[in-house]
Design a protein around this nucleic acid. Structure first.
Lengths: 136, 136
DNA sequence: TTCGCATGTTAGAACGATTCCAAACTTGGA
DNA sequence: TCCAAGTTTGGAATCGTTCTAACATGCGAA
C-alpha cells in the first residue's frame, strides 16, 4: 500500500477498489494526467471504473491537498501528485508533454531543460485582491 | 482610429463595424476580458454583434499576434491586448480579477502587489520537447 | 458473522465554453 | 453598379466537466 492510500485511510476514507486504482494511477514522477488518461490507466487494473468516479476521486484528492490541479491551454485539467516539492512546469507547446522543474528563476538553467528548447515563460501570482480580503 | 485598427487594415483586413467595436473593446491597461465580456462591451456600441463573430475575431487577433490568449483556472479564456510589454499576471483566487505586473522575480516586489495578498506563484516554461523538435 | 446504513459508484443527462456550419449579407475592386 | 470573396449569424455540434438519482458496498455495531 502506498503512503497516499495510508494517508487517505487515516482521513476516514473508505478504501474502495476504484479509489485504490485511481490513486495508484496517480503515482510517479512527472505525472500530469488528464481525467481520461487516469481512466485509461485505472481500467487496466479495474475495467469497470467509470469516468464519474475518476472525476469525483480526483476532485476529492485535490481538496485534500494530495493532488495539484493544473489548467492546461488545451482546456483540459491535469493532475499532479507532486505536492511535497515546490516546483514549476516545463510544457511542450506542440505535444503538451509536461515535466516538473525546480527552477525558481525565469531563466531556466540548462541543467533543468531536459533537452527542451525554451520559448517563453509565464508567471502567475495567485493572490487575494483588496476587495476580496475585505469581504472575507 | 487606434493604431491596432491601422495595423489590421495594413494586413488586408476588411474593416467591418463588428471588428471595429470588438477591437475597441480590447483596448486599455489591465484588460483581460472573456469572450462574453467582450460581447457585452461590443454590444454597447453595436447591439447586433454575435458571439460567433466575437470568437472569430478574437481568434484572428490572437493568430496575428495582436492579442494574448490566457487560460484561466475557471476554464474560460481571457484576452490581453498588452502584447508589446513583456509582463506577467497577478490573479485574485476569489474573484478572478487580473492585473499585469512587470516583475521577473518569483518574489513579487511590494511595489507591484497592488494591495494584493500574494499566496503563491506558478511558473510555466513554454518550450518544444526533443521529439517535437525532431518531427518539425 | 451478519446487518444496517452512511458513503461510494454509476450511466446518462445537463451544463457551459467554444467551434462548426451553411445560409445570408457586406465590402471594396472592376 | 455589380460581383466575388470575405464576413457575419443563429443554431447545432463538440468537448470537458458536473450533476442526478438509482443502485451497490465498506465497515462499525451487535
Amino acid at each position: 500500500m502506498t503512503p497516499l492510500l495510508d494517508r487517505l485511510r487515516d482521513r476516514g476514507w473508505r478504501l474502495t477498489a476504484q479509489r485504490r486504482v485511481i490513486a495508484e494511477a496517480m503515482t510517479g514522477e512527472h505525472v500530469h494526467l488528464t481525467a481520461d488518461e487516469v481512466l485509461d490507466r485505472a481500467r487496466v487494473a479495474l475495467p469497470e471504473v467509470s469516468l464519474a468516479t475518476v472525476y469525483n476521486t480526483l476532485n476529492e484528492l485535490v481538496a485534500l491537498g494530495e493532488l495539484l490541479e493544473l489548467t492546461h491551454d488545451d482546456g483540459r485539467k491535469r493532475y499532479d501528485p507532486n505536492v511535497t516539492e515546490r516546483h514549476h512546469h516545463l510544457v511542450c507547446v506542440d505535444c503538451g508533454r509536461m515535466l516538473d522543474v525546480q527552477a525558481d528563476d525565469p531563466r531556466l538553467p540548462t541543467s533543468q531543460r531536459h533537452g527542451f528548447e525554451v520559448l517563453g515563460v509565464e508567471v502567475t501570482f495567485r493572490a487575494r485582491c483588496p476587495d476580496c480580503t475585505r469581504a472575507a
